[in-house]
Design a protein around this nucleic acid. Structure first.
Length: 282
DNA sequence: ATGTCATTTTGTAAATGA
């Protein structure tokens, strides 16, 4: 089973990239962020092409900003349209989380508040929001939280830590909030797969040729509980989706899970009765 | 680099957010 997360920076504008990407990568579960659409507009633009590809979806949108979705072709049940106890920013309950049960996993697509700068009210809101996210996890073992965390877990996840010392995304309180979430029993599966690699980035600013120079950050994460984390066969960043014309400023993260051993693994195809004969070596 | 992209509007240029 293939799970992916992608901050698309407008699902409508990204449609010419999103649909071919679905066809190429064939994910079973997709968490999207920054759809920037109302629920109605998302359905108008995407319901037909997604149905054609076998996906059900759950979308939570505001219209102008934010907006998250889960696409699934392995079931989509018990949809929760917000985090329990999610804080508002001003009076607005922003569209930053949607949860559903897909393929035996409790999946949440998250778009964590950016924070702007550490002295901005948006930063305090970010920390409150992360606390609500932590408190929303009831069964870590089967949980997957995937999306744009707007936090680089360590300095290795930033192209130049010196550039970000006074910035959001790397401050100790944000990293502590992420550590609390992980401390519930979740695993950052890309980092677990590539413990010694630097320059694993998922986001590159559009400005200043940052992608071309590979000056990015790893802020899009897949956090998985013990069951899915133990079945990770592959975990990687799809940098190809950041190239070419009209990309998002984020690349997708793709995670492949082996089938659960205690479940129905489907029909077992027997090997051919006669082994194929190799041509003679010359 | 103040470098781009996407959104919206007392709208067609400027603001806001990332």
């Amino acid at each position: 089973m293939r799970l992916a997360t992608w901050n698309v920076n407008s699902a409508l504008v990204r449609l010419p990239r999103l649909l071919p990407w679905l066809d190429e990568r064939n994910p079973d579960i997709v968490c999207l962020q920054e759809t920037k659409l109302s629920d109605e507009a998302f359905a108008d633009a995407l319901a037909a092409p997604l149905a054609e590809r076998g996906y059900e979806f759950a979308h939570v949108g505001e219209g102008r900003w934010n907006g998250v979705a889960i696409l699934s072709r392995v079931g989509l049940d018990d949809v929760e349209r917000q985090l329990p106890g999610a804080p508002t920013f001003g009076d607005v309950l922003e569209a930053r989380a949607v949860t559903a049960t897909c393929g035996g996993l409790r999946v949440t697509s998250v778009y964590v508040p950016n924070g702007r700068t550490p002295d901005d009210p948006h930063y305090a809101y970010k920390l409150e929001w992360l606390a609500a996210l932590r408190d929303s996890v009831t069964d870590p073992a089967t949980t997957v939280i995937a999306g744009d965390m707007n936090i680089a877990p360590t300095d290795v996840d930033v192209w130049d830590p010196a550039v970000f010392t006074e910035s959001t995304h790397v401050t100790p309180p944000e990293r502590a909030a992420l550590a609390e979430l992980v401390g519930l029993g979740l695993i950052d599966v890309v980092r677990a797969k590539w413990p010694d690699h630097d320059r694993i980035f998922t986001y590159w600013d559009y400005r200043a040729g940052r992608f071309h120079q590979d000056l990015g950050m790893r802020i899009d994460l897949v956090l998985a509980g013990a069951d899915p984390a133990g079945r990770v066969a592959a975990a990687w960043v799809d940098r190809k989706a950041r190239k070419g014309s009209g990309p998002s400023d984020h690349a997708p993260v793709i995670v492949d899970l082996d089938e659960a051993l205690d479940g129905d693994i489907g029909p077992v195809v027997p090997p051919p009765s006669t082994p194929k004969k190799l041509p003679p070596r010359r």
